[in-house]
């Protein structure tokens, strides 16, 4: 087991104070030790279930969008758009 809390936090977009991090590291180590108890199965092969096929949707337009409703929960809106901090690429 190699638990890199900082890396996992970065991937998860979470931050922890040093104290929190220490506590988390301990807790996570216990949890991981618990979940590591798995039988030795051959884990090759695909995760797929052809016996339970999916019913697909017909290509039909059914939605009547309502922008006001869709944006009513947004933290910041301007000009009909959601606003986020400047994205620099």
């Amino acid at each position: 087991m190699n638990l890199d809390i900082k890396h996992l936090a970065k991937l998860s977009r979470l931050t922890f104070s040093p104290e929190e991090e220490a506590k988390f590291e301990k807790e996570m180590a216990n949890i991981v030790a618990m979940v590591e108890k798995l039988p030795d199965l051959d884990a090759s092969g695909a995760l797929i279930d052809p016996d339970n096929p999916m019913q697909m949707r017909k290509d039909e337009v059914v939605n009547q969008p309502n922008r006001t409703e869709l944006l009513q929960n947004a933290p910041e809106v301007q000009a009909g758009c959601i606003v986020v901090p400047k994205v620099v690429e």
Partner: peptide
């Protein structure tokens, strides 16, 4: 989803 697949419409009017 059943939203229209359309280009060039007013912002956030083709979503659900």
């Amino acid at each position: 989803c059943g939203c229209r697949n359309a280009f060039g419409k007013e912002v956030n009017t083709q979503c659900c």
